[in-house]
């Protein structure tokens, strides 16, 4: 059963957990947790796509030359782009958390449906 697409499917199940939390939960922090879980799953998926079986990290040293890297290393391009994405994820998390804190200060609750009812 350890086939090679089962890793992709497990990763998408993790992403689905995030989608479920984002849609079904009413607590704002739970929604933020859903977004963070989706982010993890997508970053991990891009790295999984770039993985070469038995590959080494794309770093040269005394034993490993550039030609060796081209033959054996994993894909460095998704790694570089995911590095950007992880840091941007931290920025969006800080923005979401500050919005949640402000909403709590105004409405004294984290419940999304309660906030909808109190508006106006």
């Amino acid at each position: 059963m350890l086939s090679h697409t089962s890793l992709y499917i497990l990763d998408m199940a993790l992403m689905g957990m995030g989608v479920y939390a984002l849609i079904a939960k009413r607590h704002i922090i739970k929604k933020i947790i859903g977004v963070v879980t989706m982010e993890y799953a997508i970053n991990l998926f891009l790295i999984l796509v770039g993985y070469r079986a038995g590959g080494i990290a794309p770093i040269e040293d005394a034993q490993i030359s550039a030609a060796d890297l081209a033959a054996r290393a994993v894909d460095p391009l998704p790694q570089a782009l995911v590095l950007t994405s992880i840091v941007i994820g931290l920025g969006t998390l800080a923005l979401m958390a500050s919005l949640a804190i402000k909403l709590y200060e105004k409405y004294k609750t984290f419940d999304m449906s309660e906030i909808n009812r109190l508006r106006g």
């Binding site: 090679h4 697409t5 890793l7 992709y8 999984l48 796509v49 770039g50 993985y51 070469r52 079986a53 038995g54 794309p58 550039a66 030609a67 890297l69 081209a70 290393a73 994993v74 894909d75 460095p76 391009l77």
Partner: peptide, 14 residues
Amino acid sequence: FGEPLMVVSQRYLA
């Protein structure tokens, strides 16, 4: 899984 395309990345790696 385990066999990426790596068209652009080959140039970067080399």
